[in-house]
């Protein structure tokens, strides 16, 4: 379990942290690739179900899809008026891509927790899933309103949502650590 999940955790860190200095120094493509690699590793030992395969494929696809994001930094202020239409459409597509990825990544984790019959782990995972998914969804829909509403309350709401999202991402990484700690034996017995 350890090696596979270590890769997944590091991959998720690359996705979560974006240190922008002309380019993204913790590039998302590498993050996706590491997650893909981590799941592949785990799949070598165990059959982890259909969700695992889906996430693995999504990860490698998004690894390529997210290459432009290395050069684009996401902003929410008036700058958006001056970005090219292509850039704006791309950011929306990446938004949706992350939503899909969150969905299937969590379901992959549910499968593992179910197999290992870890009720607590499963419950926590499900809870975090709903929170993360809904917050990301709200961010995705609310962002588009910035085009048309410049009032302070919208920007403030978005800022709060971003902060909540950061907290949820941290919780997610901690959750991944719990999965990493799950003794291999628990999965073995069910195979």
């Amino acid at each position: 379990m350890k090696k596979g999940f270590t890769k997944i955790i590091i991959g998720q860190l690359f996705l979560f942290l974006n240190i922008h200095f002309f380019i993204d120094w913790l590039p998302d493509p590498i993050g996706f690739f590491l997650i893909h690699s981590g799941i592949k590793e785990l799949s070598k030992r165990w059959n982890l179900g259909s969700n695992a395969i889906i996430v693995k494929n999504l990860a490698i696809t998004f690894a390529f899809l997210s290459i432009p994001s290395v050069f684009i930094s996401r902003t929410t202020d008036q700058e958006i008026f001056h970005m090219f239409l292509f850039t704006q459409v791309y950011l929306i597509i990446m938004n949706i891509a992350f939503l899909i990825f969150i969905f299937y990544l969590f379901h992959f984790l549910f499968d593992i927790a179910k197999r290992a019959e870890e009720q607590n782990l499963l419950k926590n995972s499900i809870r975090l899933f709903y929170l993360s998914f809904i917050v990301w969804l709200i961010i995705g829909t609310t962002q588009s309103f910035v085009w048309n509403i410049q009032e302070g309350w919208l920007v403030m709401t978005l800022s709060i949502l971003y902060m909540v999202n950061i907290v949820l991402q941290i919780l997610f990484i901690l959750l991944l650590f719990s999965y990493r700690k799950t003794p291999d034996g628990w999965l073995e017995a069910k195979m």
Partner: peptide, 20 residues
């Protein structure tokens, strides 16, 4: 749920773009 999410994001973006 996933489909609702995807469609929601698409609709709100298209709607705002058209209004803009």
């Amino acid at each position: 749920l996933l489909w609702i999410g995807i469609i929601g994001i698409i609709i709100s973006n298209i709607g705002n773009y058209l209004y803009y």
